[in-house]
Design a binder for these strands. Sequence first.
DNA 1: CGGATCTCCTGT
DNA 2: ACAGGAGATCCG
Length: 281
Amino acid sequence: MFIIAVVLSISSAYADDFTQCSQSFYGGVYPEFSNTKLSNNTQALCMDGFAVMYSGVSRTPLWSAEYLTRKRLQQAKQIDREDSFHEESQLPQSMRAQLSDYSGSGYDRGHLAPNGDMANRSQQYDSFSLANIAPQSPRNNRYIWRNIESATRYLTQQYGEVYTVTGVAFTDKKAKQLAGRVLVPSHFFKAVYIPVSNQAGVYYAPNDESERIEIISIDELTAKIGIDVLPVLDAKTKAQALDLPLKAGEAMDIPEKKVEEPTWILFVVAIFEWVMTQLQT
DNA sequence: CGGATCTCCTGT
DNA sequence: ACAGGAGATCCG
């Protein structure tokens, strides 16, 4: 009996149990560490609307994964932002980041899975868990990241569904710390996979005030950070970086299968709007 | 072009 | 729970 309890507690200590939220991953397969050092003291968390791989070493998420659809984003637009930053009660105290770690640090509490993607209050609350948040340079968070989050929602709108994995990297020899407890990532990334065109690309940005950003392939991301965020993709898709837009509304180089409303719907909407303007005068 | 609103936050 | 900052964006 004792042995069984020990085995259970050990297996849950580095649980990669995402069975309750496998729908957040393309093909149901979650990101894979190629740099095994990263897997030290990690904890898998199934949140409402997304999945998180959390590190008790950095006291940040390493990545958060979401499955986005038109319907989800349409619902997300209906709820206003309600801030509720909080510690993650699913984590043991020793692994948790605390609100006090961030206060007065000069860093923003940057969401990985963004509030803007959350379709109801429960999902929204979970997105404000510190298990989904990492110290982010203010200009990066408020200008660069805001744009790529809205560009990702725009792509979802265009192509109907998108899988995305947002995460952080620690490429510097010595990472900065908040309160001697929370490590400050050197980079943020967001990988986007579009199933209907079988194309993937990654936004990759240093976590500083430079506002620099680059677009790379899944393979290049794996080489930089030691995580293959989309293990199921074929080799060609991983090697070729999709030329992702830097802001919502920007055109992208996908030749076929552009998803648009049939023209008759646009026609009906135009007539409806014209009638409404006539009624208002 | 000016003003209102939105969306990331901050601090008390 | 409240007030404010700052840039983007929308609208007349």
